[in-house]
Write a protein that binds this DNA or RNA. Structure first.
Lengths: 121, 121
DNA sequence: CAGGATCCTATCCGATACTG
DNA sequence: CAGTATCGGATAGGATCCTG
């Protein structure tokens, strides 16, 4: 995003340890933790899905945000995109190895949060 | 819903049900994965920090966003806030058990992403 | 079906100034 | 020190229409 988090200040003897994140990692983290990114990645864990399946799977997402999110994640090499040139066209999305790897802590995160929360009123 | 995340799809007839927008977990997830939330949580993993320590630790964050992020995370019971009524006042922040729990997959996520990415130029 | 193009609004967020 | 208050530009994101 805005670059320039955490550049240096890497002086020896600093107690609050810091993650220097002025690198490309910042962008990937931002995409992964974007409003819809996490849900797309988790959705694709169980099976590859087509565009409309993702849209219906993730409640509340608009087509615009879905395609935008997908585009970013494909560029980050977290998910792949396969086009079947039929009519009507079929486009399928799935996790790459990298995406699969990333989705594990994400799912873990999600599970820990839901486990902690009180049941619905 | 506390029922959690997308599961099966092995069942015929029922389709992939998923995350509702009004799921309470959604708010927590949004806070945790907010622009600054993840960095605040990771920063507090090693030690409790005061306001200015957090501000200096997380480069690029404004006071406004820091206090706003902290307020949200305190409300979610992810971090605690302790005020020492001296002059000048001292306010310390730290992770609750819940926050500690959540910070693990977050750190894991961060590590996996940085590990995958090409090294800095 | 899978999206791109537009338009428009809500909010995010930084900069600045001020307070106990 | 640890914030709050306010303003304004940037951006996220929804709604709608359109196309191959």
């Amino acid at each position: 995003m805005t670059e320039g988090m955490q550049d240096r200040q890497a002086e020896a003897g600093h107690r609050y340890d810091v993650f220097h994140t002025d690198c490309p990692a910042r962008d990937v983290v931002d995409h992964v933790t974007s409003r819809w990114g996490i849900w797309v990645l988790i959705s694709l864990r169980n099976s590859n899905l087509r565009f409309y399946e993702l849209r219906e799977s993730i409640q509340g997402i608009s087509e615009k945000m879905l395609s935008q999110t997908l585009r970013a994640l494909v560029q980050d090499n977290l998910i792949w995109r396969e086009v079947e040139p039929t009519t009507p066209p079929q486009v399928t999305y799935g996790l790459t190895d990298f995406g699969q790897d990333i989705s594990e802590p994400l799912t873990d995160l999600f599970n820990r949060i839901t486990r902690q929360l009180p049941p619905r009123p």
